[in-house]
Simulated scan of single mutants.
Amino acid sequence: MKILLIGEFSRLHNSLKEGLNYLGHDVIIIGSGDLFKKLPVDIDVSVKFFNNSLGRFLRKITFRVFGFDIADLETFLRVKKNLHQLKGFDIVQLINEDAFNLNPGLQKLILKPIFKHNKFVFLLSCGDDYTSTNYHLNNKDRYSVLTPYFKDSKLKKKFQYSLKFTTKPYKKLHDFIVANCNGVIASDMDYHIPLLEHPKYLGLIPNPINIKKIKFSPIKANNKINIFLGINTLSRIKKGIPFFEEALNIIQKKYPEKVDIKITKNLPYNEYINIYNNAHIVLDQVYAYDQGYNALEAMAKGKVIFTGAEKEWLNHYDLKEDTVAINALPDVNQIVKKLEWLIQNPKKIEDISKNARSFIEKEHHYITIAQLYLDTWKNH
């Protein structure tokens, strides 16, 4: 089959492509590489001119005067230039409702011919979208990515990206995509739960992880325990990073001889991956029920991850608490206690490390997951 994957935010579509290629299918990824992450794509439609010094200046001026990001026009034109390459596919999958990270009106203009000239279209719920954001706004569960906003409305500006999906233009884009797609797939529990009542929901397919590219490094926690926190400043509040930062300050003061703490900000994907190779423990996110892509790749390497590992996730995969990953709550004291438990019991770090790799091999193997996608696409 010929398969077109639109957008790339983590490495999900790249790993899926590798699995599909292994199974004998032709796959093309079109996208921007997601800003500083610089993720690989086959057709690059990232902003070039409006990211140089002159372009950024013009971008600021036009946004201030017209309230419109002129860089969207560059993305639109780059996609339009490549429309002839986006025809005749058996399957098209959007990574998200905002797959091109583009003004919804322009995005709709781009998607119309793509929907028209290809056979089947599927939508991934992966990252913020209308369904999950609307669900969290109306169902204030134990916590969600919007919890900081609920607690302090002054943070609204920090949540503009999430909240934009419930505005009229993005709701119209959502309705247009859902009306024209053959089904919606969730990439993890955080998107699965809001979709349970959706008429076109096809189920959860776990993130694919290419375990052939990611080598398992057995942990020997004999000396100092290395703790790594990689911060994306754009999602710092949403992911609950301040809880990690405060907890690390406490741990650093309490165990200066036992820990080595490394904190980075906004690294390109390849640098980010390489820099945590020496880590024993990786702090990922707080406001989640399941693991995001970075956490899963780190688990494949055998890192002990502080991330979303809630009871819904434990039940889904039939796991016991703190055996595969550490459930990080929005509670500094809880994070400190979990870190102390590992520092004082380094054998636990080694055990969880092995369990994490085994879990990825069993539940997230990129070839197995690619087959799950094929079966789901074919049946709908």
Rank of each mutant, 00 (worst) to 15 (best):
K2N: 14
I6P: 02
G7H: 04
S10T: 14
S10G: 15
R11C: 10
S15V: 01
K17P: 14
K17V: 04
Y22P: 03
I30M: 02
S32Q: 11
I43N: 05
D44P: 11
V45E: 00
V45Q: 03
V45K: 07
S46L: 02
N51T: 06
F57E: 05
F57H: 12
L58A: 08
I61M: 03
T62R: 07
I70M: 13
F76G: 08
V79K: 04
K81A: 01
N82E: 11
L83S: 11
Q85P: 07
I91R: 12
Q93C: 13
I95C: 13
L109W: 10
L109S: 09
L111Q: 10
I114P: 04
I114Y: 08
F115I: 10
K116Q: 14
K119F: 09
F120L: 08
V121R: 05
Y130N: 11
Y130E: 04
S132Y: 07
Y135F: 14
L137R: 01
N139H: 14
K140G: 02
V145D: 10
L146A: 06
T147A: 04
T147M: 08
Y149P: 11
Y149S: 12
K154H: 12
K156Y: 06
K157D: 00
Y161Q: 01
S162R: 05
F165R: 08
F165D: 03
T167I: 03
K168C: 04
L173V: 02
N180R: 02
N182I: 00
A186G: 07
M189H: 04
K200M: 05
Y201W: 11
L202Y: 10
I205L: 12
N210I: 03
I219P: 06
I219W: 02
L229Y: 02
N232K: 14
S235Y: 14
K238W: 07
K239G: 13
F244V: 00
F244W: 06
P256L: 01
E257K: 13
D260F: 03
I261M: 00
I263M: 07
T264R: 07
Y269M: 03
N270R: 12
N270K: 14
I275S: 15
N277P: 03
N277M: 11
A279G: 10
I281T: 08
V286F: 00
V286G: 04
D290S: 15
Q291P: 11
G292T: 06
A300T: 09
K303T: 05
K303E: 07
K303F: 06
K311I: 13
W313E: 14
L314H: 02
D318M: 13
D318H: 15
L319D: 06
K320R: 13
E321K: 15
D322S: 15
V324F: 07
D331E: 00
V332E: 05
Q334T: 05
K338Y: 10
S353G: 08
K354S: 12
A356W: 08
A356N: 11
F359G: 09
E363Y: 15
L374D: 01
T376A: 09
T376K: 08
T376P: 04
W377F: 15
H380A: 12
